[in-house]
């Protein structure tokens, strides 16, 4: 009996200890970064570009570059990912082909971002002659995020009841019409979740962008920006922290990234809950 009690208490304590470590780590990271970073976020930092003449640092170009990359990547990845998911759930009949596509998607999601960076710099920057540009970076990220968008869309397509499709077919609709009017409107949830997850991944991505998008801080418009080199927030953080030793700016960016991560997670949860409630009604 004594031995049994000892076992129970050891396991209990280990569980509390582990859960405590995880929680306190998260809280520490959150508060440390916010306390060190938030005081350094000024309007000047957010609204200007770096100026060597005045010796000031601004991260407006990096914020814009991040937005440009997100937009471009979604522009390419959405049709590709949603299309692939539709093919897999609506058209594919050959099991081996489905298995192959799913295996490829799994492989893609396992490849580390540094290898994407290397591949991107070889293929998009050199072979396709885009040089180091936001477009090359965004295209690299398209490949990286394709599996995510594909998987979330696929999951939500699977929840569309078969009877909806059969009903539409029975009324004489062609396959494309069924997809356009019945299937697509019902997979909005998966598409949105996929977008949020990808945006989160892009906001946090650095290794894949370092060699494909470069690290210039020039202030550009959208189309100009696409074809010129530019750093996103994470890459800027890395450069400020390691190459320039400017930790105030680095922590300010870290705090911004932390807040963005919180917002992205929150919206993913809220959207999940919203659709869950909707599907119950």
């Amino acid at each position: 009996m004594k031995k049994r009690n000892a076992y129970i208490w050891t396991m209990r304590c280990l569980m509390w200890l582990a859960a405590g470590v995880t929680t306190s780590l998260t809280l520490f990271l959150l508060t440390f970064v916010l306390i060190k970073g938030v005081p350094n976020i000024t309007w000047e930092l957010l609204s200007t570009k770096p100026s060597y003449l005045r010796g000031t640092v601004g991260i407006l170009p990096d914020i814009l570059n991040t937005l440009y990359i997100i937009l471009t990547m979604l522009l390419f990845a959405l049709p590709l990912g949603v299309g692939a998911a539709i093919y897999l759930t609506e058209y594919a009949t050959n099991k081996r082909l489905v298995g192959m596509i799913e295996y490829a998607a799994e492989t893609l999601s396992g490849i580390p971002s540094i290898i994407y960076g290397l591949f991107g710099s070889l293929f998009f920057c050199q072979f396709m002659d885009l040089d180091k540009s936001l477009l090359a970076g965004a295209l690299t990220l398209v490949i990286m995020n394709l599996p995510t968008i594909m998987r979330t869309t696929q999951e939500s397509l699977k929840t569309v009841p078969q009877s909806y499709r059969e009903g539409a077919f029975g009324l004489g609709a062609g396959k494309w019409r069924v997809i356009r009017t019945v299937v697509l409107p019902n997979c909005v949830e998966g598409v949105i979740t996929g977008c949020i997850l990808s945006v989160g991944r892009i906001v946090g991505e650095s290794a894949a962008l370092l060699f494909t998008a470069g690290f210039a801080h020039a202030l550009n418009g959208f189309f100009e920006g696409l074809f010129s080199s530019g750093s996103t927030l994470t890459v800027a953080l890395y450069v400020y922290a390691t190459e320039e030793g400017n930790f105030e700016v680095a922590f300010a960016i870290a705090a911004i990234l932390m807040i963005l991560t919180l917002l992205i997670n929150l919206s993913a949860t809220l959207i999940g809950k919203y659709f869950e409630r909707k599907s119950k009604v």
């Binding site: 990271l29 650095s206 290794a207």
Partner: peptide, 8 residues
């Protein structure tokens, strides 16, 4: 924890 960027 999963979403914090690796540079942070």
């Amino acid at each position: 924890l999963a979403g914090i960027p690796s540079v942070v």
